[in-house]
Amino acid sequence: MKKAIATSALGLVALGAHAQSSVTLYGIVDTGIGYQSSQTSLGSTTGGHSVVKMINGVWAGSRFGLKGSEDLGGGTKTIFQLEEGFNSANGAQSVPGLAFNRQAYVGVTNSSYGTLTAGRQYTSYYTLLSPYSPTTWLTGAYGAHPGDIDSLDTLYRANNSVVYTSPNMYGLTVSGSYSIGGVPGSFNAGSTWSAAAQYLNGPVGIAAGFQRINNSTPGGGAWGPDSTTSNAGAQTAVSGVNNGYQTAQAQQRVAVTGGYAFTKQWDVSFSYSNVQYIPGTNSKFHDQATFNTGGAVLHFKPITTLDLAAGYSYTRATESNGISSAASYQQFNLSQFYSLSKRTGLYALEAYTRANGQTLGTKGAGNIINATAVIGDGQNGAPSSSRSMFAAGVGIITKF
């Protein structure tokens, strides 16, 4: 249960607090055991071995945070959120060097005019598309489309962001975000911007969005530290799927997600995305690489304490950069979640990916290798050394 804490009890915000202010301390701890059939280093196609390891933050990322609001009158409130992710297996920060790596923003909200926030936060693309992403019931670690190629999981958070989200207008919500790179001499370099719309009508929901992420390094190459969508100066979500294209000048995504609830027990969601890696003069590849992904998830709730889901996705790259047999990835997922209480649950996850075709290795153009399997985004840094990978995990999660 989330605990509301009176601001007068918090010395750091006690001074100047108003009677209609509130601060909430909340968190999640998620830990389990996982098995992976083959693990090797990123970019390698040899030396893979099976592994059993402790996993954390799989069903929902382990975190703690503070969020609050102050009533300014006239229906307007000031809001803020500070959220830190951590590794529950060893106590380390999720992202070294970032005190509030998940979110850190402040803003204002009004039920008639919408919400405007500034800081480190999710893009409009993710926020409005995510309710129907595969991660809702399959998790990001096991169920995100291979490597989270389309940014439908939480790996992509943007620094220096200004985000506006409209109120719900007859079922329609629109949102736009812009992240300032702050690179001298260029307003565009390092920036991230996105726009999205979501429509809800009873059991039906659909969302569409666009997102562009610009490298702050002129002409591409190593992902620059001023790039707004990055963690500690490194490009996020590099995996065996996009490893050969990580020196891009820009990444661009267009996606559509949606869902339909047949009954209180059955619902289905779907997603389609088109992802483009655009080269610059310093990139290690010379042709634009495009990945198309389609997927669906069927969710079943036979009793109030049990959730079951099954998912499938297919990702295919274009033939470019000397590749004549384009890479493709088929992923199959199952998930089971049992609620012990409103705050605590047990989960089990199973996933299998089969890769085919060819892709670029770490060195880029001219270094063509066989595509290797990647499951979700929990194994991005430790992909399979072969075309197949199986992974399974069990864990416990509790919220406060």
Rank of each mutant, 00 (worst) to 15 (best):
I5V: 15
A6M: 02
T7C: 12
L10G: 07
T24A: 13
T24D: 13
L25V: 12
G32L: 07
I33H: 02
S38W: 01
T45L: 04
H49N: 14
H49T: 15
S50V: 00
M54I: 06
I55T: 15
R63I: 08
G65W: 05
G75K: 13
I79E: 06
I79G: 01
L82N: 05
S88C: 02
A89T: 13
A89L: 03
N90L: 10
S94N: 14
F100Q: 03
R102C: 01
T109R: 12
S124W: 00
T135M: 00
W137R: 05
T139M: 00
G143S: 01
A144G: 08
A144T: 00
G147H: 06
T165A: 14
P167L: 08
G176F: 03
Y178V: 08
N188W: 06
A197T: 08
N201K: 09
G202I: 05
G202Q: 05
V204I: 09
G209M: 07
S216G: 13
P218N: 11
G219F: 04
A222C: 00
G224V: 07
T236Q: 13
N242I: 08
Q246R: 15
A250Y: 12
A255E: 04
T257N: 07
V268M: 14
N274L: 13
G280C: 03
T281K: 09
N282T: 11
F285Y: 15
F285E: 03
T290H: 04
G295Y: 09
H299Q: 06
I303E: 04
L308T: 05
A309D: 05
A310M: 14
A317V: 11
Q331Y: 05
N333C: 00
Q336T: 12
L340G: 10
T344D: 14
T353L: 07
G357F: 07
N370D: 15
T372M: 00
I375Y: 07
G376F: 05
Q379G: 10
N380V: 11
A382C: 03
P383I: 09
S385V: 10
S388H: 13
A391L: 04
T398A: 12
